[in-house]
Simulated scan of single mutants.
Amino acid sequence: MYYNFTETPVLKLEMDYAVKIFSLTLNLPKQEDYALTSQIRRPPVSVSDNLAEGFGRETKMDKKRFYVMG
């Protein structure tokens, strides 16, 4: 059992993906910073947000709802 969502293997895997995605977008043109680059970088943040939100929920159904969104 995990006492903190940061201990979960899925979050660690997600963080690895987020770092890779961020490094891949570093070489995109500067004019894309607020358009394409931003759109590419947002999903990993959303996944970790949903994992954290779901972890804090009380019921299994409520947890599942956030995990499925992630």
Rank of each mutant, 00 (worst) to 15 (best):
residue 22 F to P: 05
residue 22 F to D: 05
residue 23 S to N: 10
residue 23 S to D: 10
residue 23 S to C: 07
residue 24 L to Q: 11
residue 24 L to M: 14
residue 24 L to A: 08
residue 24 L to C: 11
residue 24 L to R: 13
residue 24 L to Y: 13
residue 24 L to S: 06
residue 25 T to C: 12
residue 25 T to Y: 02
residue 25 T to E: 04
residue 26 L to N: 13
residue 26 L to F: 05
residue 26 L to R: 13
residue 26 L to H: 06
residue 27 N to G: 10
residue 27 N to W: 04
residue 27 N to L: 13
residue 27 N to E: 10
residue 27 N to Q: 11
residue 27 N to R: 13
residue 28 L to D: 05
residue 28 L to Y: 03
residue 28 L to I: 09
residue 28 L to E: 04
residue 29 P to E: 00
residue 29 P to Q: 00
residue 29 P to T: 00
residue 29 P to R: 00
residue 30 K to D: 14
residue 30 K to Y: 03
residue 30 K to I: 11
residue 31 Q to D: 15
residue 31 Q to E: 14
residue 31 Q to V: 13
residue 31 Q to C: 11
residue 32 E to D: 14
residue 32 E to P: 14
residue 33 D to L: 10
residue 33 D to F: 01
residue 33 D to M: 05
residue 34 Y to V: 01
residue 34 Y to D: 07
residue 34 Y to C: 06
residue 35 A to Q: 10
residue 35 A to I: 09
residue 35 A to R: 12
residue 35 A to G: 15
residue 36 L to E: 03
residue 36 L to Q: 03
residue 36 L to N: 10
residue 37 T to E: 05
residue 37 T to G: 04
residue 37 T to S: 10
residue 37 T to L: 04
residue 37 T to C: 06
residue 38 S to W: 04
residue 38 S to A: 11
residue 38 S to V: 05
residue 38 S to T: 12
residue 38 S to N: 14
residue 39 Q to R: 10
residue 39 Q to T: 02
residue 39 Q to M: 09
residue 39 Q to S: 12
residue 39 Q to Y: 01
residue 41 R to Y: 00
residue 41 R to Q: 09
residue 42 R to N: 06
residue 42 R to F: 01
residue 42 R to I: 09
residue 43 P to Y: 00
residue 43 P to K: 07
residue 44 P to H: 01
residue 44 P to L: 05
residue 44 P to I: 02
residue 44 P to K: 03
residue 45 V to T: 14
residue 46 S to K: 10
residue 46 S to V: 13
residue 46 S to H: 05
residue 46 S to Y: 03
residue 46 S to N: 08
residue 47 V to F: 01
residue 47 V to A: 07
residue 48 S to Q: 11
residue 48 S to H: 07
residue 48 S to R: 15
residue 48 S to C: 09
residue 49 D to Y: 13
residue 49 D to H: 15
residue 50 N to C: 12
residue 50 N to D: 02
residue 50 N to H: 07
residue 50 N to K: 10
residue 51 L to S: 04
residue 51 L to G: 01
residue 51 L to W: 01
residue 51 L to N: 10
residue 51 L to C: 06
residue 52 A to E: 06
residue 53 E to V: 09
residue 53 E to Q: 13
residue 54 G to I: 07
residue 54 G to K: 08
residue 54 G to E: 06
residue 54 G to M: 05
residue 56 G to T: 02
residue 56 G to H: 01
residue 56 G to L: 01
residue 56 G to K: 08
residue 57 R to D: 04
residue 57 R to K: 15
residue 57 R to N: 02
residue 58 E to W: 15
residue 59 T to K: 09
residue 59 T to Y: 12
residue 59 T to D: 06
residue 59 T to E: 08
residue 59 T to M: 03
